[in-house]
């Protein structure tokens, strides 16, 4: 269960391909590929094992110049999806 104190990390060995503001990520172990829009890409890049979900949300909100409480739910949904795909661990 992801909460505000969880610290997400990208799984090692996952390949990524940049496409302007978007990204495609690929796990050769599971053969799983995923497309990330601009927001999801930023979330993925911020999952470096040093930030809590709260800190990640705050940074994203600053990037988009939005209130944190408007972005927190989206961040958690994205992280849950990345965890489902086993591309991020918490």
């Amino acid at each position: 269960m992801i909460n505000e104190r969880s610290i997400p990390s990208r799984r090692s060995g996952v390949l990524h391909y940049e496409l302007v503001d978007e990204m495609v990520i690929y796990d050769a172990v599971t053969s799983q590929a995923a497309s990330l829009n601009e927001t999801a890409r930023l979330i993925w890049e911020l999952c470096d094992g040093t930030r809590t979900v709260d800190a990640l949300s705050a940074e994203l909100a600053q990037h988009f110049d939005m209130p944190v409480d408007e972005i927190t739910a989206s961040v958690r949904e994205a992280l849950e999806r990345l965890c489902e795909l086993r591309l991020v661990t918490v």
């Binding site: 496409l19 302007v20 978007e22 495609v24 053969s31 995923a34 497309s35």
Partner: peptide, 18 residues
């Protein structure tokens, strides 16, 4: 179609070796 979605669509329809 966004480029990243297009990549997955093309990959789904690719004959190249896994």
């Amino acid at each position: 179609c966004s480029p990243s979605i297009a990549v997955l669509e093309l990959s789904d329809n690719s004959f190249n070796s896994q």
